Lab assay of single mutants.
Amino acid sequence: MIINNLKLIREKKKISQSELAALLEVSRQTINGIEKNKYNPSLQLALKIAYYLNTPLEDIFQ
């Protein structure tokens, strides 16, 4: 099972779900679904998340 630290990292960087969704060009519901482990992001989306949060991919999804 993948450990998902997206919410923790996003909140630590003081970025809202809506702000991150806008940067990634996805819906806020997509971010919410990823954070609640209801949706697994594509590799492309996971890499974009890591880029915009300036955090290694391995720290977000373990």
Rank of each mutant, 00 (worst) to 15 (best):
K13P: 01
E35S: 02
T55R: 04
I15D: 00
A50D: 00
N4W: 05
D59V: 11
L57K: 04
K12G: 09
L45Y: 02
Q62L: 13
L47H: 09
N37E: 06
L24H: 00
T30H: 08
A21S: 06
L57N: 02
S18F: 09
A50L: 04
L45K: 01
T30P: 02
S18C: 11
N40M: 14
L43W: 13
E35T: 03
I9P: 00
K12S: 14
I3H: 13
K13Q: 10
A22N: 11
F61C: 04
K48W: 05
L53S: 01
K36L: 13
K36P: 02
N5K: 07
E11L: 09
L45T: 05
K14E: 07
I15H: 03
N5G: 06
L45G: 00
D59Y: 08
L23K: 13
G33I: 09
I49Q: 00
I15R: 03
N40Y: 13
I60S: 02
Q17E: 04
E25Y: 09
L24C: 15
Y39W: 11
N32L: 10
E19H: 11
F61Q: 02
E19C: 09
K13D: 02
K7E: 07
D59F: 10
I2S: 10
I31T: 01
L23W: 13
L24V: 15
L23N: 08
S42G: 11
Y51H: 12
L45R: 00
I60L: 10
S18D: 14
T30M: 11
K13Y: 11
S16H: 04
L53M: 07
E19K: 14
L20T: 01
T55Y: 05
T55W: 05
L53I: 04
A22M: 13
L23Y: 11
A50W: 03
L8V: 14
T55K: 03
P56Q: 06
L43H: 14
R10V: 05
E11A: 06
K38P: 04
L47Y: 10
P41H: 02
I2R: 11
L8M: 13
M1F: 13
K14T: 05
Q44R: 11
K7C: 08
N37F: 12
Y51S: 08
L43N: 09
V26H: 01
D59I: 09
Q17A: 08
S16P: 05
F61H: 01
A46P: 03
I9T: 08
L23A: 15
I2C: 15
Y51V: 07
Q44Y: 10
L43F: 14
L47I: 11
E19W: 07
A46Q: 15
P41L: 08
T30R: 07
K12V: 07
L20W: 03
N40I: 15
S18P: 05
S27A: 05
L43G: 08
D59M: 12
I2Y: 13
S18R: 14
S18E: 14
K48T: 04
I60P: 02
N54E: 14
S18G: 12
A50T: 03
M1V: 13
I9G: 01
N54V: 05
K7T: 06
L6N: 03
L8E: 15
N32K: 15
R28M: 12
E35Y: 04
Q29S: 12
L57D: 02
Q62V: 14
N54M: 08
R10C: 06
Q29M: 09
L6I: 08
I15K: 04
L24F: 00
I49G: 00
I49L: 07
K48V: 04
P41Q: 02
L23I: 08
L53W: 01
G33E: 15
L53N: 01
Q17V: 13
Q44P: 11
I49R: 00
L47C: 14
N4V: 06
A50H: 01
R28D: 10
K14C: 11
L24N: 00
K38E: 15
Y52F: 13
T30G: 01
I15T: 05
L24G: 01
E58K: 10
I2E: 07
Y51C: 10
E11R: 09
L8A: 15
F61M: 04
Q62K: 12
N37A: 09
G33V: 10
L6K: 00
K14A: 10
N5F: 06
L20I: 04
E35F: 02
V26K: 01
I34R: 00
Y52A: 12
K13A: 12
R10M: 07
K14V: 04
N4L: 06
Q17L: 12
Y51D: 07
A50E: 05
M1H: 11
A46M: 15
R10K: 02
N32W: 12
Q44N: 13
Y51P: 01
L8W: 09
I34W: 08
E11Y: 06
V26G: 02
Q29L: 10
Y39N: 06
N54Q: 13
N40P: 11
L53Q: 00
K14S: 08
P41C: 08
Y39T: 09
P41Y: 04
K14L: 08
I60R: 01
D59S: 12
L6F: 02
L8K: 15
S16I: 03
L45I: 07
K7N: 04
A46C: 12
E58P: 07
I9R: 02
A22W: 07
N4G: 04
I31A: 00
K38L: 15
E58N: 11
E35P: 01
I60G: 02
I49P: 00
S42F: 04
E25P: 04
N32C: 09
L53H: 02
N37I: 05
Q62S: 10
F61W: 09
K38H: 14
A46H: 02
N40T: 14
T30L: 15
I34F: 05
A21W: 03
Y39K: 10
K36G: 09
L20C: 03
Y51F: 12
K36H: 13
Q29E: 15
K48C: 07
L47V: 12
P41R: 01
L53K: 01
L8N: 14
N40D: 10
G33T: 09
E35M: 03
I9E: 05
P41W: 04
I15N: 01
E35H: 03
L23V: 12
N5R: 08
E19I: 06
I15F: 07
E25C: 14
E35D: 03
I49H: 00
L8H: 11
L45C: 06
I3Y: 10
I15C: 07
Y51W: 11
F61G: 02
D59N: 12
K36D: 14
I31E: 01
N54D: 14
E58M: 08
L45Q: 05
N40A: 15
Q17T: 08
Y39M: 10
K48L: 06
G33Y: 14
A22E: 11
Q29F: 10
Q29Y: 09
A21M: 03
V26S: 01
K12D: 09
L57E: 04
K12H: 09
E19A: 12
L57H: 05
L45P: 00
P56E: 07
Y39E: 08
L43Y: 12
A21Q: 03
S16Y: 03
K38N: 11
I15P: 01
L47N: 12
L6R: 00
A21I: 03
Y51N: 07
L8D: 13
R10N: 01
S18N: 11
R10W: 03
E25D: 12
I31L: 15
I34D: 01
Q62M: 13
S16N: 06
K12F: 09
K48R: 10
D59A: 10
L6H: 00
S42A: 05
Y52E: 05
Q44F: 10
Y51M: 12
R28W: 15
L57M: 13
N32M: 14
N5E: 04
A46K: 15
T55L: 06
I2L: 12
K48P: 03
S18I: 11
E58I: 09
T55D: 01
Q44E: 14
Y51G: 07
R10S: 02
Q29G: 11
K13E: 07
S27M: 04
I9M: 06
S42Y: 04
K7R: 12
L24A: 09
L57A: 06
R10H: 01
K12W: 07
I3V: 13
I3R: 14
L23T: 06
I60W: 03
N4M: 05
E19S: 09
T55F: 04
S18T: 12
N37H: 14
I2W: 12
Y51T: 07
L57V: 14
E11M: 12
I60D: 00
N37V: 04
V26F: 02
V26Q: 03
K36T: 15
I31K: 04
L53G: 00
L8P: 08
L24D: 00
F61I: 04
N54W: 05
I34T: 01
E11N: 08
I3M: 12
N40F: 11
I2T: 13
T55N: 02
A21K: 01
L23S: 08
K48S: 07
S27L: 04
N40H: 13
L47F: 11
Q17P: 04
E25H: 14
N32G: 08
F61Y: 05
